[in-house]
Each structure stands twice: as C-alpha cells, then as structure tokens.
Design a binder for these strands. Structure first.
Length: 424
RNA sequence: GGAGCGGUGGCCGAGAGGCUGAAGGCACCGGUUUGCUAAACCGGCAUACGGGGUCAACCUGUAUCGAGGGUUCGAAUCCCUCCCGCUCCGCCA
C-alpha cells in the first residue's frame, strides 16, 4: 500500500499517479476523502491524547493520595468522567482511522517515471528475440496435443470443470521436464534458493502481497478454514518474511518456487480460453527477489533477464513489453511482460510478468531490513516474475517446434529431462 | 478433538493491579585503559503515531509485554474470546 503520509504531503503525486493509470475518476474522490479523514483523524488523536495525559496524571495522584491515606473520591470521580470522554473519542477515531486505512488499501501503487501513461495500447515493445514463424503456418496447440495424446481436456472438464487441464503421458512428462529444467537453471546458474511453499495461505498473506482486499472474487477460498488457494507462489514466498527485519547484509535475497497456481478468472469467461490459453489451475516457476530501494531497478532488470533466459534457452521467439501505467498491476511500480509467439493461434502469449513493487508490498506486509547494525529499519523492495508459466510455454513449444508431419521437436535443453528429442 | 503448560524488548529472562517502557544477562554502539588480539570499567541502546520546532540530529504527548474485547480512577499483572508453541492422550494416515 502507499504510505499514508503521502496523502498529507504528496496528494498531488498520488493524483498524478492514478491519472497516469487512467483511474483518476475512480480513485480521485478516494484521495479527496482520505485527505479529509486524515485531518479529522489527527484532530481526534490530539483530543484523545490530551485527555489520556490528564487521566494518567490524575491516576498517579490517586495512587499518591491513597498511599498517604487521604480521600481520593473526588479525583476518582473526575477521572472516571475523563474515561467516558476518552471512550467516546476513541470510537470516533476508530471510525475515521478505519475508513482511512481501507482507502489506503484500495489505492494502487504509483508507477515509476519511465512507465508510459495510458492503457494497454500504450505498452512499449522493448525488445524482440528470435524469428517468429508465420501466423497460421502451423496448427494450434490443442489440435497437436490431442493428436499426440498430450492433453485430455474433456476429462479435465468432467472431473473439475473447463479450464482444469489433464496432462497425459508425454504431455505430463513435458511439463515435468520444463519444471526441472527451469528450477535447475535458476538455482544452479542464477543463484536462487529453491523453496517449496504452501498452496493455501491465510488472509494476512493475501493482503500482504495485495491480492486482497481488491481481488477477492478472483481467488479460490476454503472458507471453513479461512484459507485461500494461491494465485501465484509470489504470495507465500514474498510473505515468508512478513513482519520480519532482515539483515541488510543478506540482500539481495533471491528465492524460486515451483508451484501450482489457482485462478478463478472471474469475468474472463469465453475470452481466449481455448486449449492452454487461460486455465484455472496451472504450474509455474516463480522468481522472487528482496532488495534495497537503491538496488531495486537493477534487480528488476536482472530478474527479467533470468525469465528471458528460460525462453532463450528453450529457443522460443519472444518479446519484452514495458507495460503502460494503466496495464501495470495494482501493486506494481513497473512491469515487464514477456510474450512468447505462438504461431498456431497467431498470438503473442504472456508467459511471464516481471514486476518491481517498490515498498508497496513491504509496507503492507511489514518486511524491513536493517542496513547496518544500530541503524533504523527500512522497508525492502520486493520484486517477482514468473520464470515461466507453463501452459502457455507449452502452447508455444507445441506450435513453434511443430513439424509438417504433426510431430513436435523437443527443445534441446529439455531433452536430458524429457528423454527423447521428438514427440510423434 | 481432549487435558496441561507457556507466549515479555534483536535474543535469553524477571515481574503477578499504581514505585515497570519494563530488573538482570547476552548481543550491539560510543568512550577510558592495557604495546596488538582479548579483557576490565563507564555510558548508550525499542517501535509507531500525534503536537511543537531555526522542521533528517531537539522538546513533548500517547500507545505498545501474542491478538482482540472487558473490569478498574489506573492492567504486562484480574476476567472473556481467539491465535501460536510445547508436552501427554485420542483420532486419522
């Protein structure tokens, strides 16, 4: 969340931030309201604390008088009145403070200056890698997959619903090869610590990484246990250090996690949902980094390059997009999307989204670091990106590596993990 | 699921209605001293939010002893609910 102090000291920057996202109409009035609440809140704080100070001195005087054997009844009575006053003011304070806090949770992060303003049409293609095959020159992945027996979509729909994928045989194995290859790459070459984390997390964790309260309808929830299925391993991994103060010397921290991810995709029914394009449950390797504020822009480039490396080693043509403010995620200050080209469906598919959250998540989750012994704790910057999301990566492989006879060549780096060089 | 015990500052650990923002120790920082390392001694050492201010270092108020409520003039201390940990029993694997 943004710093509450910004409401008082930099309301203009906040307004400019939401304007660049194209949501001034929606968030502007919230900022106005927050400014009023902040003034109200501080006046009430003063009033409450004045009375508490008076009560504290009175209480001490009562203690003194009783010890001296004097009658303190009168003072006790007046202190009791103060207490009633305090209770009333505290109710007021809780109301304005509560509303103020709720607004803070609703306000998106302010994007960095280099992020273009406007909606997705203003996204910038930063770079392109590889030679995409002509759109429509090959069959869409679902046709190849069906012919080769890699996916069983009807049975997935039968046991869980559409958007729940059953991988079979070499389809399942391809996924496992992808997992082992990527985790090995990130741990061996790029220095990430491998983690395995819970797939269900509590509400505090979801708030910490800013999935909640805004996007509750997109989450699967186990209401009996007050747990949510994670939409990405970003949630458990980033929250690992919630309410902790890290030793500055350990930064930057780099963690990776392979996990299943669960998304209800409410509101996107029927949109790009064929085959592996948009599913409710999928596997992904996530990269998470924690850094100092000064270092986070460089860490962001580094993390994005790690995700890109996966695509390059796989030999899949792809491009990097700098998302415009309006297309940048709620909590992100800057996001690169990596898109792989899938010639069968003729589309660029988002396979990774690499974001620098600044201190937005760290503030919510209270993840701090001490720069050096004796110094004050500061919020870390959190970053994460997928490296990569598997269904769309598999879609890209099945299309890019498709041969005229309908077989699919296995990318070279996967062969040691997959066990053969072609799926036919 | 049942029973018992426990949760206090960066860490360990006292305290059992007012004298406790919290003894003592460790760690850490500054100083003195010994030719280096080490030791000894002295001093310092929480966070958040208000207010004031020649506004990053100063003064002042409030809150914080797992969380949230309650009793009281006053709660780390008493009561209730919840969370977490440990031990034992039961249940499931």
């Amino acid at each position: 969340m943004i710093d509450g102090r910004m409401v008082r000291e930099q309301a203009g920057a906040l307004r400019e931030g939401v304007r660049r996202r194209g949501s001034l109409d929606k968030h502007g009035p919230l900022i106005d309201r927050a400014e009023r609440l902040d003034r109200e809140r501080r006046l009430t704080i003063q009033a409450v604390e004045e009375r508490k100070a008076a009560r504290n001195t009175a209480s001490q005087e009562v203690a003194r008088m009783k010890k001296a054997g004097e009658n303190a009844d009168e003072l006790v009575a007046s202190a009791r009145e103060l207490g009633a006053d305090i209770a009333r003011l505290e109710t007021e304070l809780a109301a304005s403070q509560g509303e103020f806090d709720a607004i803070l949770l609703e306000l998106p992060n302010v994007t960095l200056p280099e992020v273009p303003e406007g909606d997705a049409t203003k996204n910038v293609i930063v770079s392109t890698w590889g030679e995409p095959r002509a759109a429509g020159s090959v069959k869409p992945h679902w046709e190849v997959a069906e012919k080769l027996g890699l996916l069983d979509l009807p049975r997935g729909a039968k046991i869980s619903g559409s958007g729940f994928i059953v991988y079979r045989g070499r389809g399942a194995k391809l996924q496992r090869a992808l997992m082992n290859f990527s985790v090995d790459l990130h741990t061996r070459e790029f220095g990430y610590e491998e983690t395995q984390v819970p797939l269900f997390v509590n509400r505090d964790a979801m708030i910490g990484t800013s999935q909640l309260p805004k996007f509750e309808e997109d989450m699967y929830a186990l209401r009996d246990d007050a747990l949510f299925a994670i939409p990405t391993a970003e949630v458990p991994v980033t929250n690992l250090f919630r309410e902790e103060i890290l030793d500055g010397a350990t930064l930057p921290l780099a963690l990776t996690a392979f996990s299943a991810c669960f998304r209800r995709e409410a509101g996107s029914a029927g949109k790009d949902t064929r085959g592996l394009l948009r599913v409710h449950q999928f596997d992904k390797v996530e990269l998470v980094r924690f850094s100092t504020p000064e270092d986070s822009p460089a860490q962001h480039e580094l993390l994005t390059s790690h995700a890109e490396q996966v695509l390059q080693r796989l030999g899949i043509p792809h491009r990097r997009l700098l998302l415009a403010a309006g297309d940048t995620g709620f909590g992100s200050a800057k996001t690169y999307d990596l898109e792989a080209f899938a010639p069968g469906v003729g589309q660029w598919l988002e396979v990774s989204s690499c974001s620098n959250f600044g201190e937005f998540q760290a503030r919510r989750a209270s993840i701090r670091y001490r720069p050096a012994s004796g110094e004050k704790p500061r919020f870390v910057h959190t970053l994460n990106g997928s490296g990569l999301g598997f269904p769309r990566t598999i879609a890209a492989i099945l299309e890019h590596y498709q041969n005229p006879d309908g077989s699919v060549t296995v990318p070279e780096v996967l062969r040691p993990y997959f066990g053969s060089d072609v799926i036919r």
